[in-house]
Design a protein around this nucleic acid. Structure first.
Lengths: 232, 232
DNA sequence: CATATACCGTACCGATGGGTACGGTAATGT
DNA sequence: ACATTACCGTACCCATCGGTACGGTATATG
């Protein structure tokens, strides 16, 4: 017994002899086999289509696998969900921002790119579906804190990634002295405003790429208004 | 038959001879009897305690009423939920802001009060529970758009209420010329930032009254930085 | 008193869905 | 060739829950 055991180990005691697949970049896909990734893709698919209809049989049927296999791999329904969320999160790895000479134009570019990315992600069907799922499970004491994973992906991952740029901006005297975490949260607020919550609540608020571009520019300009170093 | 019929009108084929209650302004308490309000309070209670355990029998038991009565009054489960959300929304009516002389200090006071209120509401257990519920039901095509009601309460109600103040600020040359709706959304973003979504996702982020006070002041100051009229 | 109304409490029904068991099959290893 | 492994598909069990039915009681009304 135990050739491919439960993935939701969170520890993965021994397993993982990885006979075929390179773990790719660090992201650590938790030793998911090709087939397992297929299953998780199906789960995401169903989740986006209709979260209410996301049942074990539905997944098994569309993935052409048996329920028994699902339970063997993922333990139970929550395990499947957690694995799915983690899997999706692992797909969105981004470049960590390379430090270099920093000036206002460069910082503006980084900020704008960040805002664009954030708006694009958070308004996407995928993100909306995952956030809805995580929110609705958030109160359950179930050991799987989906919310944390989602936050990791939508906020905590981008936050630390942006902070170095802000700090570089401070060192280059482009920005005032400030707490990078607070500045980041301000920028986040200026970028997202009420967009995400409205979408999550079902408000039909769609952003075209043009809208996103404009919003990113606006947020960036506002950020500079708040935090640009006063004089030279 | 039919003395107190289904509340979730939306259809109510014949009924509604309205022998007693004026519908007041649109929203109105929808002619809820004392006993019905009791039931809805129980529902809210259960919702806050543990939304997953919010079952018809649970409500009936704690409210000491029969399931049959619940169905008679509210039609079905969704009807009960919708009535509950609407009921709670009806409890939070606020004063509509009285116009008067406007200056920077006065506007700052209004903004700060608004931000305080918004933060207080959106971080409360009640709001979190209702938002979780509405978010998780948002995709369902069910005729009851809980999300709209919740938005009405958490954003759309406060938005229009704040706009007159912003407009007054513009007229008094305290603020630049701007689109009140956009300015409101900016202020909303500066106030809430990532607070609400983090709480909804289960992040244990608690704000003390002191914190809320500070956040409100910060958001207000930032808003003026963005939008104060340049010179006199 | 008789009747109707409104409601409670309990029992019941049917569907759904999580979780398990089992038989069959294809591939792999010895 | 045989055993093992991993898996599919189906059938099955069981708990839960939405929704309905029914009997009983208190109140009001004529």
């Amino acid at each position: 017994m135990m050739g491919q055991e439960s993935v939701l180990s969170a520890v993965s005691p021994e397993v993982t002899q990885t006979e075929e697949e390179v773990p790719a970049i660090g992201s650590s896909p938790d030793a998911l086999s090709e087939r397992q990734r297929e299953v998780l893709d199906v789960t995401l698919e169903l989740l986006i289509e209709n979260a209410a209809a996301l049942t074990m049989i539905a997944v098994a049927r569309r993935a052409n696998c048996s329920k028994e296999t699902l339970y063997k791999w993922f333990g139970d329904r929550d395990g499947l969900l957690a694995a799915t969320v983690r899997y999706q999160a692992s797909k969105v790895r981004v470049q960590p921002f390379e430090a270099g000479t920093m000036n206002r134009a460069k910082l503006a570019e980084v900020l704008e790119g960040f805002a664009r990315g954030l708006l694009t992600i958070l308004t996407s069907d995928m993100s909306v579906a995952l956030n809805r799922l995580a929110v609705s499970q958030a109160e359950a004491k179930s050991g799987a804190p989906l919310g944390q994973i989602v936050l990791q992906n939508g906020r905590f991952s981008t936050g630390p990634r942006l902070k170095p740029a802000i700090e570089a901006g401070m060192r280059a005297r482009v920005l005032k002295d400030l707490d990078p975490e607070e500045a980041f949260r301000d920028f986040y607020g200026l970028t997202i405003r009420d967009t995400q919550i409205r979408i999550l609540l079902g408000d039909d608020l769609r952003l075209s790429p043009k809208d996103i571009e404009a919003e990113a520019k606006r947020a960036t300009a506002q950020f500079f208004t708040l935090y640009a170093a006063s004089a030279a």
